[in-house]
Nucleic acid binder design. Sequence first.
DNA 1: GTCTATAATTTGATAGAC
DNA 2: GTCTATCAAATTATAGAC
Lengths: 193, 193
Amino acid sequence: MEPPITKAGAILDSAERLARIAGYNGFSFRDVAAEVGIKSASVHYHFPTKSDLGAALARRYADRFFARLGDPSDLAHPSHTLIERFIAGFRDTLAIDGQMCLCGLFGAEIAALPEAVGAEVRSFFERAIDWLETAYGRASRGIVGDDTAPRDRALALIATLEGALILARTLQDPAIFDRVAASAVPGWRPPPR
Amino acid sequence: MEPPITKAGAILDSAERLARIAGYNGFSFRDVAAEVGIKSASVHYHFPTKSDLGAALARRYADRFFARLGDPSDLAHPSHTLIERFIAGFRDTLAIDGQMCLCGLFGAEIAALPEAVGAEVRSFFERAIDWLETAYGRASRGIVGDDTAPRDRALALIATLEGALILARTLQDPAIFDRVAASAVPGWRPPPR
DNA sequence: GTCTATAATTTGATAGAC
DNA sequence: GTCTATCAAATTATAGAC
């Protein structure tokens, strides 16, 4: 992660790291302030309420996630690499950040989130479904005999990858993510290096 | 859910319901006490610390889950029904309780849990993997061409079902669970009624 | 077993000086 | 923008009466 340019960016970086460990109710303005090196009152200046901060967290997380993925309609991306790009998005969460997907965690606690935060989390998953649906539409060389609709395949892959993060972290073995992904997507192999 | 017989049981019922909404950091002794109709000090009598309560919660959840599933080696269970029994275990969590899997949610926050709680959550997933591995070993009529190891198939199905709960709840559509399950397990159909 | 009372800390949030 | 100061409420937990 590049060093933050703005103070708001630094706050979001810190809050995201903490939220991805302990969830929405597991981090505080004081935790974030201490990490950033300011006081909690100053955090409130940038994000008036915790709901504001939580929503900004989820929105930025989603924007960054899909910016890295790129446009699935873009012909510059060979269609056969689209699915592995998507998987890599989740895999990096574990391999690089060593953390849970923010929206996966927030999604698990969705019923306890302020409405504004929940809306952003929902938006993340809707965008993910649309992205994958488009990707499956292009890479339409499905396995022979698999007549599952692209949208259902999208739902299933997203569910599997979120669950794979939970499993790999709980059992403290990142390789579990790769084994799950390989088992869910025939032909997929973990990237080298 | 049958009405609790003991006070400790009533406490666990209430705490489980709350924890499955908001996670480990999202419920308090006072919340639980208020639901049960006692004072928070009385909850401490039954469960001295929150870590004790959390661990008891996860352990009871796991015991109940696997008691309902039964022994996958038991020949009384036709092998072709084992996988759908397992799926039903997760599906009921949504269809009956309308809630997240307790250990799925706790697993997502694993790095923030007291060690004693994390150990119980880990145990839940290890038991789930063993159960499914045994089931896949018996129902060895895998799809032609699928040479995935039973243990990896187990990991993948558990991940998919946990993720399906997150997706279905976040997008507020229980049918999503069924579509994911059907897409992950060819031939599976949601139970009638 | 449950209560009252309370301790010690943390929480989200605000007022107002600089 | 950040600070000090502060608030009201909530948190986990304990002591001790009943």
